[in-house]
């Protein structure tokens, strides 16, 4: 659902560009807390992985193309701020090196695919993770549902932007129905991939999953006083 050049009117493109710049600035401030020396390459790797995942592009009839977005996946693996930066970097590379997504629409694409999915999805994830049991199943369920919901959420924001500044007047009901229908399907794929990847990483290297930090037990100190006493 990369938006191309000339799809939205110039004022809306400029406005989304400003929102994107603000959001990215916020993400950079937040990412300073999440990133340390070891996680900077991790962020690059997440970006490369999402780039590979986003290449599974399937054109879906009326409306725009559907492909996985990976926003929630990135947020769970490296944290929402760094995750948003990862997806933003992926969008920049796609726009500049692969001509995918318009250059003047880069702001719009960053808002939709990066900011809305990572921050929106992360908010849903946080709510669910508090409500559900503190376990692997709870983590994966929250991640799956958040990933699923993040995609139609982005589609709805797109419809909203189109209402504000679409190049042409089309039936809102039909557009909303098409976008939601397509993106519910994409959302299912997104949820499956997110659960599979987070599940596998949490089994093998739980230390790598930002969203699973609450599952690792507190470090306890055993001083060995008992042995010395006996």
């Amino acid at each position: 659902m990369h938006v191309p050049d000339g799809f939205l009117t110039a004022p809306v493109s400029v406005a989304t560009g400003a929102v994107a710049a603000g959001g990215v600035a916020l993400a950079i401030r937040g990412a300073r807390k999440e990133l340390d020396e070891k996680t900077a390459p991790m962020a690059g790797l997440v970006a490369a992985f999402i780039f590979a995942v986003q290449m599974m592009n399937f054109p879906v009839g009326a409306g725009t193309s559907g492909h996985l977005m990976g926003g929630v996946l990135a947020a769970i693996l490296v944290g929402p701020y760094t995750g948003a930066l990862c997806v933003t970097v992926v969008l920049i590379v796609q726009g500049l090196l692969f001509a995918d997504g318009g250059l003047t629409a880069l702001g719009t694409n960053i808002v939709l695919i990066s900011l809305v999915t990572t921050f929106g999805g992360w908010a849903i994830f946080r709510v669910l993770i508090r409500a559900l049991p503190k376990s692997r199943v709870g983590l994966l369920t929250s991640g799956g549902i958040a990933a699923f919901l993040s995609v139609p959420l982005a589609a709805l924001v797109f419809v909203l932007l189109y209402l504000l500044g679409g190049a042409v007047d089309i039936d809102v009901g039909a557009l909303t129905a098409t976008m939601l229908g397509v993106h519910v399907l994409v959302g299912i794929g997104e949820a499956l991939i997110t659960v599979a990847v987070v599940g596998a990483v949490v089994s093998a290297r739980p230390d790598l999953v930002y969203g699973a930090r609450h599952l690792t037990p507190e470090l306890t100190l055993r001083t060995g006083q008992k042995e010395s006493a006996s």
Binding site: A31, A40, P41, G44, A48, A52, L85, T88, V93
Partner: peptide, 13 residues
């Protein structure tokens, strides 16, 4: 920080 993520990403692709 974004340049760094970008550099690592292109390296890791």
């Amino acid at each position: 920080i974004m340049v760094q993520i970008l550099t690592f990403m292109l390296r890791y692709v």
